[in-house]
């Protein structure tokens, strides 16, 4: 599982830090830092963070790149279905 924050959009509201303190952190006064490859056990927290971000700057998904299914029909659920990982 990979996380990416669009730091051009991020306004350091810190809502993600409340939702998933294991992954996100505001360091200094306004600098957001995060673990971009968190363990799967934090999935629900991560979902909470993504939902809570006021500017919707958080993307979650499997690591991009050729997977074992490269060239095969779709197996990965589109992230646009936000509940995919919760089901």
């Amino acid at each position: 599982m990979r996380v990416m924050v669009d730091l051009a959009r991020c306004q350091s509201y810190g809502q993600c830090v409340f939702a998933a303190p294991e992954i996100f952190e505001i360091s200094g006064r306004e600098v957001l830092e995060y673990d971009s490859a968190p363990s799967d056990e934090w999935r629900l927290h991560l979902e909470r963070a993504r939902a809570a971000c006021p500017v919707q700057a958080i993307t979650i998904g499997p690591a991009a790149g050729p997977g074992k299914d490269d060239g095969q029909p779709s197996t990965v659920r589109p992230a646009a279905d936000s509940m995919g990982v919760l089901r």
Binding site: E47, S82, M83, L86, R87
Partner: peptide, 11 residues
């Protein structure tokens, strides 16, 4: 059946 739906639903 899907209580975790509450996460995006609150938003």
């Amino acid at each position: 059946h899907e209580p975790d739906l509450v996460v995006p639903m609150v938003e």
